[in-house]
Design a protein around this nucleic acid. Sequence first.
DNA 1: AGTCGCCTGGTA
DNA 2: TACCAGGCGACT
Length: 278
Amino acid sequence: LPELPEVETIKRTLEIKLAGRTIREVVVLFPGIIGGPSPEEFAAGLADAPVLALRRRGKFLLVELAGGKTLVIHFRMTGRLVYHAVNTAPAEHTRVIFELTGGGQLHFVDTRKFGRLWLLADPSTLSSLARLGREPLEEEFTREFLRLGLRRRGTKIKSLLLDQTFIAGLGNIYADEALHLAGLHPEKPARDLSPGEVGRLHRAIRRVLEEGIEHHGTTLRDYLDGTGTKGRHQDYLRVHSRAGLPCPVCGTRIVRARVGGRSTHFCPCCQKDYEHGE
DNA sequence: AGTCGCCTGGTA
DNA sequence: TACCAGGCGACT
């Protein structure tokens, strides 16, 4: 669920609460959620750790701690990290509790238990983090970078957008949205995009992510920010999760299909520039 | 490149 | 009851 805009929103809402704070004690309620080291070492290593800064990389949240270690969090499908100013009874599916000095708690809640937390001296030893591609909102993500990445790739453009080693942070929602804004069929082979289409896609990726951040993320079901607040971008989605509803551009019914194993929503009129089977 | 497994809950 | 879900890694 949390894609780039959601993790960015979690980061922004939590850094206000965590600035200058120290983690006093950590209680791991479900050890399987800890990616490493052992749950015991994870908890012990976080005790009395001052928080220096929060960062986001792709869909990862990184909490940098005094002493050089980093708490790395991936929310996967249903993970959330919510701050409580006063001690609060853990909600159902709470997996880890971080107690802060001076009062307040962070609860990591994850219904499906797909999320992972790591405590690492060197985050680059986590291969899924080290192998991430470019940050789409940073300057280094240029039209030329996108052009070179698509060149000679026969894979469907939607699948490539979801490849975290190429672009870090797009998930199923924002990939669908970017392709609609760019007017591209999700199954169009990457190498078949014209220079003009690459330019449109480049702008569309940036725009949908920026809009998502502006609206504090998309809450289709589970996502909440660091203060427990829903996002608003679900009210602005063009195609994603809107099968059967009219396209906001032309009114044609949005179609839902399966592309690269993922549920995919698109407008057959605005995004028909690739004819399946040709 | 496609499928499965990991988990739980919501909806048809 | 069956199928679906915003992710991702392992496997074929």
